[in-house]
Design a binder for these strands. Structure first.
Lengths: 140, 140
DNA sequence: GTGCATGCAAAGTCTTTGCAGGATA
DNA sequence: TATCCTGCAAAGACTTTGCATGCAC
């Protein structure tokens, strides 16, 4: 239950109510290697909680997103929203265009570049997203 | 009609039939500053062609995509497919998180980086996508 | 003329919303 | 207890598909 407290604390800090679903969703996403679809999270949840509803998962994702606890992604050519636990050090992904498998990349080469581009256009930087597409060894 | 021939030639080179819709879609996307939604393309098409159907536009996008004549994008937090004319020199975009306005960025800092990451993981590089998010001057 | 493209209508998939009952603070 | 969360069902948005007709080659 110790790690659970991490998620409870996060929710509390954001002034959100601590509910079973929210804690479990954070736990699932934090434990995931890569972004997950809503349905994937939902399926895991069903094994942990007696009764959950898909729409609750959608609403939960929305709340977590608006409060900066998760990030939302959409792959090109895969029309489903994917969510990932938001860490301090952000990650990018290598995505297989055949099987959609994703591998996390730790280091980020473009923080500086993003800052420059925003300055040049008068934008206030809020973030960036980089995905590298390729064909993984299994699919070659 | 001169530029039109460019698109006709492109279609021909790919072994595709040259139809009014396909030529016009390429023309529209080529003339656009930024990626467009299917609906946006559809609305422009209606002013150019007497009768078009949304599903035809979807099918056209699909054909053009599979033949490498356009690229598909999905912004985070905006669940619509967007398409853009595929040029030799690819572009990235600065996206306003408030109004979704996009600005094209010409130079790309990560070709080399993408290659390295793929090599390291045994992937065969097929492409990458970079989007920088911020708040544009109008929305600040 | 043959085969692919298109219009039209219907279905499919993912996501959102309204409302009543239930849980949290 | 007041307020927010959740389950359930229905609706909504975007996209895909089947079939008959029309057009490109």
């Amino acid at each position: 239950m110790a790690e659970n407290n991490v998620y409870r604390k996060l929710l509390m800090q954001k002034g959100l109510r601590i509910t079973n679903v929210r804690v479990k969703v954070l736990e699932i996403l934090d434990g995931a290697e890569t972004p997950m679809t809503v349905e994937e999270v939902f399926n895991l949840l069903r094994n942990m909680i007696t009764s959950v509803n898909l729409s609750t998962v959608y609403r939960t994702m929305d709340v977590l997103l608006k409060n900066g606890l998760v990030e939302k992604t959409t792959l090109m050519d895969f029309n489903k929203s994917m969510y990932e636990y938001k860490r301090v050090e952000h990650k990018h992904h290598l995505v297989c265009t055949v099987c959609n498998r994703m591998i996390s990349i730790e280091d980020c080469p473009i923080d500086e570049y993003a800052r420059e581009m925003c300055n040049k256009q008068g934008f206030e930087l809020t973030g960036h997203k980089l995905e590298i597409y390729g064909i993984c060894p299994n699919c070659k």
